[in-house]
Amino acid sequence: MAKIEVRDCVFSYDDKIDAVKGISFDVQEGSYTTIIGHNGSGKSTIAKLLIGLLEKKSGSIRIDGMELNEENLYDIRDKIGIVFQNPDNQFIGATVADDIAFGLENHQVDPSKMDEIIQEYAKRVSMSEFLAHEPTRLSGGQKQRVAIAGILAMQPEIIIFDEATSMLDPQGKKEINELIYELHEKNHLTILSITHDIEEAVKSDYVIVLDDGKVIMAGKPEDVLMHQKEMIDLKLDIPFALKAVNELKKQGIQIKDTITIEGLVEEICRLK
C-alpha cells in the first residue's frame, strides 16, 4: 500500500519558475525510500510540501489515504515526523528533556505522563544520560538523536530525513544512519530519506532520482542505479562497486554490473 502518494505536484517559490514541475511518486508502507539529486534539484522542497510547510500550486498529495489540505494539515503532521539538516536549528527546548517534551506539549499530553514518555524515547535513541544537558554541550549527532526522540514520542508512521546527516562528523553520520536503519527494520516505520549518499541509496528499498524539479527515474536501487550514463549526466555519483566494474571492464575483464561490494566480490570470485 502506498503510504505517500504524490500526483502531478507543482510548486513555485516566486510564481515565475516552478521549483517542482509536476512530480508523481509513491512511497510504500514500511519501505525505506531514498530521494537523490544534486543541490537545487527540488529534494528539500518536496519534503516541505509533504508536511505542509509549503503549499503546492496544483496536483495532489495523499498521506495514508488522506488528501493533504488545510483542514487536515495537523492530523497529517501527527503521522509524519521530519528531521532537518541543521542539528542546531531544530533544537527548541532548553535541555534534552524539554526538547523531547516540545511535541508532547503541542499535543496537550498530560504533564504528569510526560516524564515517562520522555525517558522511554530518550532511551530509544541512547540519550538517557543526557536528559538535563543543554544543546551547547551535545555533539551534532547527539542533537539529531534528540530530534528523532522528539519525533518518535509523537508515534508517527512516517519519518522524513532531509539530509539529516550531511552536517555531521563521521561518528555522528554512522550513529544516525544505524538508527534510521533500525527504525525501519525493527519499528517498521516508513522512511523517506533525502540524501547525497549514494551508498545509502544502494541499501534502501526504493530510489527516486530528481533533477530540475522532475522525477527522472524511480525504482529498486539495482534497477535505477545501474543506469550510470543517466546518473553521470545528472551530475550524480555512481555506486563504488559500479565504478570498480567499469575499471575491470576497461582492463578487459568481462563482469556483470553490480552496485554492492558484496555482489562485486561474488562476481569476481566467480571469475577465478
Binding site: K243, A244, E247, L248, K250, Q251, G252, I253, I268, K272
Partner: peptide
C-alpha cells in the same frame, strides 16, 4: 586506485 586494484584482480583471475 581502482586502476591498480583492478590490475591486481586481473592478474589473479
Amino acid at each position: 586506485t581502482l586502476e591498480s586494484v583492478a590490475a591486481c584482480i586481473k592478474k589473479e583471475v
